[in-house]
Structures are given as structure tokens and as C-alpha cells.
Amino acid sequence: MKHDLELKLQAWLDGELPQDQAAPLGQWIARDSEASALVAELRAVKETLPGNETPRAVPDTREFYWSQIQRRIERETPALRPERAPRFGRWQRYFLALAGVAAAACTLVITLRHAAPPIFDEISSTSDSMEAVTFHDQSGQMTVVWLQDNSPQATPKQPLLKTQGANQDEGSPNVEIQ
């Protein structure tokens, strides 16, 4: 049998032939034993397969299977389908954004302040007989300068105190703070 005819028999079986061709071909198939046998074979497969596919289940648990899909959806399509936020949520988001900017600004200012090198003003003494001991308290932001006048004229021997910072005191005229 020619292959074209075989395909025509199959098309007849599958209902893919136009009606005007299908009817006479059907009559011919009924009369031809070879054609009938071939059609019977094709029909057996055609009718046996549907509904007899082996059922198969996903080998992973529901949670694991979904978690992989969800992760890829979030990674590959973050902008396509965002969860629709309620109106209140939108205002909340604006507020949070502003609060975030303000917090960042505060953090920046504080960081810069702390990161700045401590200010140690230069202390110079105009007298050769003057001794100076300096103490700087980083946490208290305070500098204490202990001055001792060893000149013969100096009486009594009392230290002159100069502080700089939070508890700044007026200093001795012998001391300059630049």
C-alpha cells in the first residue's frame, strides 16, 4: 500500500478528512481487507492510550517543591507582580521612607562628630619658669592644664587651672589657648 494512502486512512480514522472524501473512503475500507486490518491496528492504539497513562507524582514534598518555585518567582519577577498594598500601607511606606532619611542624616552627623580628631589646642607659655602638665579626658571632652609657676616671685605656690571643654574655666593670664 502506498504511504499516501496509509496516511489518508489514518486521517479518515482521526476525523481529519473532509466529509466529501471521508464517506467514499469509509465504504472502500469496509471492502478492502488490507485497509481494514491497518485501520484496526491504528484504531487499537488510538483507543487504548487515552486514559491509560501511568499517573506520576512529584517526588518532592509540597513545601519543598513550592519553596523552589517561590524563590525563583521572587528572584526572576520581583517587579511584575508585587503584592498590592492597602492605602494605609502606602502612607506608612512614605512615612517610613522619610523617617529613614532622617535617621540616616542623624547617623551621619553623629559619626562625623565622633570620627573627627579630638581638638587639642596648642598651649604656649610666655614664662620660662612655668611648668605645665596637661590631661585630656576624651569621654568627657575636657582638657585640664596644670600650671606651676616656679619663679621666685611666685607666692604662694598655687596651681593655676585652665580647662577647655564642657566645664571650661577662665584661665591664667599666662596661658594662651589658640
Binding site: H3, E6, L7, Q10, E41, L42, A44, V45
Partner: peptide
């Protein structure tokens, strides 16, 4: 059509 024909024959 050709693939379907031979696939059915092979299945049978």
C-alpha cells in the same frame, strides 16, 4: 501525519 502513523504502528 507521518510521525503519528509510524508511532502508532510501532506502539502496536
Amino acid at each position: 501525519m507521518s510521525r503519528l502513523f509510524y508511532a502508532r504502528r510501532r506502539m502496536a
